[in-house]
Amino acid sequence: MKENLVSIITPMYNSGKFIRNTIESVLNQTYEDWEMIIVDDCSKDESPEIVKSYTKKDERIKYIRVSENKGVSNARNVALKNASGRYIAFLDSDDIWETTKLEKQIRFMKEKNCAISFTSYELINEENQKLNKVVRVPKSVDYKTLLKGNVLGCLTVVIDKSKLNFDIKMSGVRHEDYVLWLSILKRGYIAYGLDEVLAQYRKSLTSLSGNKIKSAMWTWNIYRNIEKIPLHKSIYYFVNYSINGIKKS
């Protein structure tokens, strides 16, 4: 584990339209001690060639292609297994970071002495146009608060592995990032929020999280089958999740 290295976890599938912007946003970081691990989930477009062209220019960018399309959880887990950094950051292949994202967030985490942090972010469309929607974050979140709704945008989360006594792994369950955050906070950790817009989340028509009904079903499944929360408490958290979802929209 390299002390100040940030390992950036980037799953990719047919992201030819966006991957350049994503990589450039990492290359433009003021914090330079990073590695970007891009795991290609059997893309059929030009995205592999685009990524390979960047690996030739900067050795910090690493390309891995899996032999079988198994989805985003598997791609992230492959990247996690190949990560060398103390810090783990997540950035999907169509999202973008502000240039000072890592510098400000790593400093923030050292000040807070925390294991996990997240930041505010804004929404953009497929044409890189801002949608005038900013998702603000609270100062901190514990396990029970997080059950009321996932306020940790995956593209903003950074985890300090040195403060955890277990391996970071995606479960494969829908909303796998939410499951991971819950598994960390359930152990007593607190997630600290930096209320500054340091990332841009691309809102696409095909976004999985865009389907409200499916998202609600996946959340209910997490309550009952992953977290094993009793029915009456699950209903309580689900009502809060629904209210927070309305506010977020």
Rank of each mutant, 00 (worst) to 15 (best):
I190C: 05
I213P: 15
S84F: 14
V135R: 13
S53E: 06
K130Y: 11
R202S: 01
S117N: 02
K133G: 07
L123D: 02
Q129L: 13
R76H: 10
T55N: 08
L164K: 01
T100Y: 12
L155T: 10
I184P: 02
S47L: 02
Y63R: 06
D177L: 10
Y87N: 13
K161C: 09
D95V: 00
E98Q: 03
G153E: 04
I159P: 15
D58F: 00
F90N: 09
V137M: 03
E103Q: 15
I222H: 05
K212T: 10
I243Y: 13
Y236Q: 14
Q129A: 14
E103M: 10
E49M: 13
V26M: 04
L185M: 07
K57M: 04
V26C: 04
S53N: 09
G153T: 06
D58V: 00
L185A: 06
W34H: 11
D40S: 04
G16M: 03
Y201D: 11
T206Y: 05
Y201R: 08
S207N: 02
K163R: 14
L208S: 14
N221T: 08
N211E: 02
G71D: 04
S25T: 03
K133S: 04
S7L: 14
Y237W: 09
Y63T: 07
E46V: 14
S140R: 11
K2F: 15
F90I: 10
E196F: 06
W218K: 03
N28S: 04
K17N: 04
M1L: 13
Y241V: 06
E32F: 10
G16F: 01
I37S: 03
T206N: 04
S183T: 06
D160M: 11
Y223A: 05
V179Y: 05
I235R: 06
G193M: 05
A83R: 07
K139R: 12
S234E: 08
M109E: 08
S67I: 14
M170K: 10
S183C: 02
S162P: 08
E24I: 03
E32D: 15
